[in-house]
Amino acid sequence: MSYDFNIESPQTADELLAVIAANQDKNFRFGAGGTDLLLELKRAPQENLTVVNLAQLKDPIFKSITKVAGGYRIGALVTAGEVLDHEEVKSEFYTLWEAAHNLASMQIRQVATVGGNLCTASPSGDIACALVALHARCEIINTKGELRSVSVADFSTGVRKTVIQKNEVLRSVVVPINSNPNLHSGFIKVGTRLSMECSVVSLAYHIQMDDNRTIRHAGIAIGAVAPTIKFTDSACAFLIGKSKLIDTEREEFAGLISDYASPISDVRASAWYREEVLFNISKGLME
């Protein structure tokens, strides 16, 4: 078996849903930017595969970032590059911007999509990690045109597994607007070099503070330290109502984050290192 497949390139959302419906008893995969999919298919070719090519879809919901009631909707086919060029994303959701900013390279960012990053369901998916921290929700559409909404934190159910059913496709994500004026938001990616890194540990944080700089809302997610990206509930709760942390609190806070980690050792780093670093950068987060 060698690398080969058929292709369907729907141009509209209706055509897309029709293609999905027509392929229900066949082996098919979606392809958006293709940066994960093509590598996977070259490594492990599949027999009688159809790629449902999303790259030529012209649908505005799939393809754009728009303001909606209570948040921003980001289409599944919005690329990392487009995220970077969006001024409001940068000012409102810096963690997402920074995740996109440090994703791979300029060339990959040109084609890699938000939807692809979520659907590939990698524990080290950077955009996915930021979206978890932002409490974003996925909007999934099925062949009947029905929409359902799932929080990004629950979207992935394991390495390379998501809640998407065979008759569904990820259409968009909605990021809720900030409820407080002051933000401490960013994305920390740990690896051996400055760029082109698959995160060894990643940490997305989006902390909202009121006018007195008291923390009112916190979203912290960690990647590459468990089979899925983790939202660190108890660490977030710990911050609410505080403004600055003293030394011992910082350690406690870091401990709460670390509790969510169950890392493995692989060629990039040992479990020991991942734990150690996660603790350290968590501590550093509130310095």
């Binding site: 390139s9 090519n53 790259a55 030529q56 300029m106 060339q107 040109q110 084609v111």
Partner: peptide, 15 residues
């Protein structure tokens, strides 16, 4: 006009 990796890009999408 945009730089991409031609090794990870399907030729059909240059149509």
């Amino acid at each position: 006009g945009h730089a991409i990796n031609s090794c990870l890009y399907l030729a059909v999408n240059v149509a």
